[in-house]
Simulated scan of single mutants.
Amino acid sequence: MPKPESFPIEKIFVPTKLKKAIKPEIVGEIAESILDIGQQAPISVRRDGDRLVLVEGLHRLEACKALGETTILGVLVPAELAQHKPLLSERPEVEAERIKMARLKQLRLEKEAAEASTAALKRVSATEAPRARPAKGVRDNPKASPGRAAKLPPKSLSDWITQQKGSGGRY
């Protein structure tokens, strides 16, 4: 297998047929990955006169362009091999891996959103707790009847709904 080398991005020609296959969401995922761990797989290019023609790695190339890179790791393949090798994006195992990674990313985002929501509710509860005062005349009076105690603000949305249902209020 040829050794990966660095190629100037502006010298790489992308055939029109490949340009039609660009998926912005994949480019974004790859760009994030490149920022985190660097480019792991080289692209494949072939010589065509003075220019290089992209054979494989469209989304990696576009991700590097989006990140402002001027060079990209790639391997130079002979024209004969370029025509017989199926594109990486056409391989079913690659598509399955991409779907799996997208699913994992979605689960991670959902988990982060849930954690952020929980943290926001805790902050709101913490800031509202000092403001809550007992009703007038109910301060630590052991003789006060339990039915006349001040209502505490609900701690969660479900507590609030339960409180509204109990009092006949609209919610």
Rank of each mutant, 00 (worst) to 15 (best):
S117R: 15
A66Q: 04
K65W: 02
A144W: 04
S156E: 11
G166V: 05
R51W: 11
G57T: 01
A114D: 06
I26Y: 10
P134F: 13
E93F: 07
A144R: 15
A144Q: 05
L107Q: 12
R51Y: 08
L87K: 05
G57E: 01
N141K: 13
A132L: 11
F13W: 07
L67P: 02
S89L: 10
S125W: 14
L61N: 03
A96L: 12
K155I: 07
V55E: 01
M1T: 04
K143I: 02
L157T: 09
D140V: 10
G168M: 09
I43D: 02
L107K: 15
K105Q: 10
A119G: 07
D48S: 08
G28Y: 05
V124P: 02
P154S: 15
S89F: 13
L107C: 01
K17P: 00
Q163Y: 09
T16M: 08
D140L: 11
K136T: 07
E112M: 14
G147D: 13
V77D: 03
L52T: 00
P146D: 08
R131I: 13
G169W: 13
P146C: 12
L121E: 13
E56Y: 08
N141M: 06
P24N: 01
G168T: 09
T70N: 04
R51H: 06
I161M: 10
A113H: 08
A135P: 04
T16S: 10
V45F: 13
I26R: 12
A119P: 11
I34S: 06
P92V: 02
V55A: 08
K165P: 00
E5Q: 15
